[in-house]
Each structure stands twice: as C-alpha cells, then as structure tokens.
Simulated scan of single mutants.
Amino acid sequence: MILIIARKELRSLFATPMGWLVLAIFQAIVGTYYSLSFNQYFEIMQSAHWQVQRIGLTQFMAEGVFGVAAVLMLFVVPLVSMKLISEERKNQTMALLMSAPLSMTELILGKLLGILSYLSLLILSMVLMIALLLPWAEIDLPYLLTHAFGLWLLMLASSALGLYISCLTANPILAAFCSLTALTFWLLLDKFFSDDHQALFHDFSLMQHYRQFALGILNSYDILFFVLFAGFFVLLAIRRLHADRLYG
C-alpha cells in the first residue's frame, strides 16, 4: 500500500505543470552553476603555481553544484510538499482516505516516499552531471557520493517537516509559507545561536550536520540526527491524522 501511494504521489507531481516547471528551473540553475564551476576551475588552477594551492576537480565542482542545490531545495521542498495533505483537505477528499482500508502510517510513509522519489531524481541528475567528466578527468566518486548522500538526508529531513506542516492546514499556500519559514529556521539555527554557551541549539541546525557530508566525512552521528529528525516529524504527522480520524 505504501508503494501504491508513493507511485500515485509521484505521478501527480508529473501530471501537473508545477512538477515539470520546478524540475526545469532547478536543472537550468544547477546546469548554469555546473558550467560556471567547470570554467572557473581551470582559470583558478592556472593561477595556482604551488601544489598546496590546488584543489581537486570533484571537490570544486561539488561545492558549486551541490551548494546552490542546497539553497534551491529551501524553496523546492515547500513547493512540492505543500499539497501532500492540505490539498486533500481543501478538495474534501480527506474523508475518503480516512475511511479507506489503510493505516495513517501507510498514508504518511507513502506520501513521504513519493516526494523523496521526486527529489532523488534531482539529486541523481547532479551526480550524473559531475560523473560525466570521468572520461576526461579523475573523479573522486566516494567524495561525490558522500556529498550526494548528505544532500539526500537533508531532503529527507526537510520533506518530513514539510509533510507535517501540510497536515496542519487546508491551505496549500499557507503550508508552503510555514514550511519555508520553519525550514529556514532549522537550517540557520547555528547562525542564530552561535555562542558557545548555546551549543545545544547549535547542534540542532540541519546545515551544521550537512556540512560534514560536504567535506566528504561520513559520520554516523550526522546520519542518526537526520533520521531521528525525519522520524520525529513523521510521527507527529501520523498522530495528527490519527486524531483527525478519531475526533474529526
């Protein structure tokens, strides 16, 4: 049942102009940065006379491409997650889902898997962009895959947050705005609380944990943080729908 819901959610994204428009704009911006980073790399390396000044092509390209992608995801995730549940409420089809022979856990996990499948296509396209340089340059695949995995975990956490907020309202526009606000807060939490005495808040920043993957560091602590963060908001979304089913 989870896979059926995920497939339906993925099809609905590509059945609307918004799904294709987001994909096209994302690819255009990322492709532009890809081209600029490629040209800038050789310009910088030509002026770097000392070996210590040189930087690997994979790291340079990934920092440019994945860096802009992380910023774009701040807007992409609220756009694609805003309709997950709020659209069902708005169209008054939520009652049909409540009466269907499926649990709220299956519904939430199916919708989350659907949106993650869509976002995974975006991440996969960036990996392929850089991997296409393999015939002409030495690509550090472990570093590239680690960076991509970190971005995927960031999208998992962001999507779970957007899904929960979508459960709270019947207005998709309001859900998108609240998701954007909440996601910005969680991403930049380390900037708001940068004092050493506020290290607890600093550690809750999504961007702080993503930076480790951007450095090519695969840390189980950072993986666990993203999984627990996503699991927390998934559980909140399930409990929210359970309450709607019981009390209306």
Results as ranks from 00 to 15, higher is better:
66 F>D: 03
79 L>Q: 00
20 W>C: 02
234 V>G: 04
70 A>W: 04
19 G>K: 01
132 L>K: 09
210 Y>N: 08
99 S>H: 09
84 L>E: 00
157 A>K: 00
55 I>P: 04
93 T>F: 00
184 T>C: 12
30 V>T: 12
244 D>T: 06
216 G>V: 05
148 A>M: 07
27 Q>Y: 15
188 L>H: 13
196 D>H: 13
97 L>G: 06
104 M>T: 07
110 G>Y: 00
18 M>V: 14
3 L>F: 15
160 A>I: 01
107 L>I: 13
158 S>P: 05
28 A>R: 06
141 L>E: 10
236 L>E: 01
95 A>R: 13
169 T>A: 08
219 N>P: 05
178 C>K: 12
26 F>V: 06
194 S>V: 11
140 D>P: 06
4 I>D: 10
162 G>E: 01
86 S>I: 00
185 F>S: 05
122 L>H: 03
29 I>S: 09
16 T>N: 07
75 F>Q: 04
160 A>Y: 00
51 Q>A: 13
113 L>K: 12
225 F>V: 03
207 M>H: 13
144 L>Y: 02
134 L>M: 15
120 S>P: 02
234 V>F: 03
82 M>L: 04
118 Y>E: 03
45 M>H: 13
68 V>A: 11
100 A>W: 12
121 L>R: 05
142 P>V: 01
50 W>C: 11
101 P>T: 04
36 L>C: 03
42 F>S: 11
106 E>I: 01
2 I>M: 11
83 K>C: 04
235 L>T: 11
41 Y>K: 07
193 F>I: 07
160 A>F: 02
195 D>P: 02
181 T>H: 10
55 I>D: 08
101 P>Y: 02
62 A>C: 11
